Amino acid sequence: MQASNETHLMEVWARQAGAYALDIFQDYAAAAPRRKADNSWVTEVDETIEQMLREQIAQAFPDDLIMGEEGGGQASNSGRIWVLDPIDGTGSFVKRLPVWCVSIGLLVDGYPAAGCVYLPVLDECYLAGLTGDATLNGQVINAENPDFLDSQSWMAVPSNAHRRYKITYPGKTRSLGSTAANVCYVASSRACAAILGNASLWDIAGAWPILERAGGTLATFSGGPFDWQRFYQGASANEPLFAASNNNYASMRAMIDLAQGAI
């Protein structure tokens, strides 16, 4: 399989997985939700999709490694590693809310280089190959948002934002339930920024290349370097992350601080 087919395959795989999940979406019992050790949700759909994707990737790219939220594995700073989040936003999926997605990312030498994020309920597919522009359903997207200070614009935030952050941004804040989707909303200039709390590599590996190709930045909340080793081992970031367009990043970040006593 040639590298030129990777972008096409990511979309095909994500749409197939999304169609499978959508068939079960309305049936709570069929999803068989349960709590993991960290109290987050997991369903049989997550596990089935990850296995589907692992098999498809292994067949197409047998020399590449694979890391997934449910099936484990570790990444590294060399080679090619596919990073899977079979359903990002499982909590929304379980509660029958529409913002959840299938996320597929490809690391090349330790850095997110290509990705696909597909939201089945909305039939929206965000895509960035190893080269070229980021797209939404085939249309080029741009993160620049000239109206980012408009009172009707919005910023994506975690569900605990009211406890963890002091926000002076004059627009709206919304918590929609999917980290990958939040980053893609910034990439498509629907959201002016996104705060990502407790993000893991599989939460952002698919969306990160999409944001960068669209003219956006994803960085640590403190502005310090990424602790890639934590990500490679499957751990969450040890501080919040922040996403915004390149032009608006500094202005937006200046409007947000950690609340006193927040951890």
Rank of each mutant, 00 (worst) to 15 (best):
G224A: 13
L176D: 06
N145I: 09
R253G: 07
S78T: 10
E11K: 12
A31C: 11
L136N: 05
P225K: 13
A237P: 00
Q2T: 09
A32M: 13
R34T: 05
D46N: 07
S92Y: 09
D85R: 02
C192A: 12
D63G: 03
I66V: 10
L119S: 10
V121T: 12
D227E: 14
M10E: 01
A205E: 09
S153C: 14
R164F: 07
G105A: 08
A259E: 09
V45F: 03
F226H: 12
F148M: 14
P86Q: 08
A193L: 06
V94H: 09
Y185A: 04
I210E: 10
E55M: 04
D257M: 14
G91K: 13
G110P: 10
M252G: 08
P98R: 13
I24E: 11
L201F: 11
V121E: 12
I24K: 14
P225Q: 12
A244C: 06
G91R: 12
A3Q: 14
A30G: 07
N137T: 09
N247A: 13
A161L: 01
Y249H: 13
E11C: 06
A31K: 08
E47W: 00
A235G: 03
V140G: 06
A191T: 03
A21Q: 07
F25L: 10
G223M: 09
E144F: 15
A259R: 15
G129S: 11
N145V: 10
G171A: 09
S188W: 02
W41H: 00
G18E: 04
A143S: 15
G223D: 07
Q16A: 10
E69M: 01
P98H: 14
E47H: 04
N77E: 14
D123L: 05
S92Q: 13
A75H: 05
M1Y: 08
I66C: 03
Y111P: 01
A30Y: 11
A181L: 01
L149E: 13
L22G: 04
H162Q: 10
G261R: 07
W202C: 06
L107E: 05
P112S: 12
Y185T: 02
A254G: 05
A128W: 02
C125T: 15
D38W: 01
A32D: 13
D85S: 03
P33N: 02
L136T: 02
V83A: 06
C184L: 06
P120S: 08
I167L: 10
N198H: 06
G129H: 08
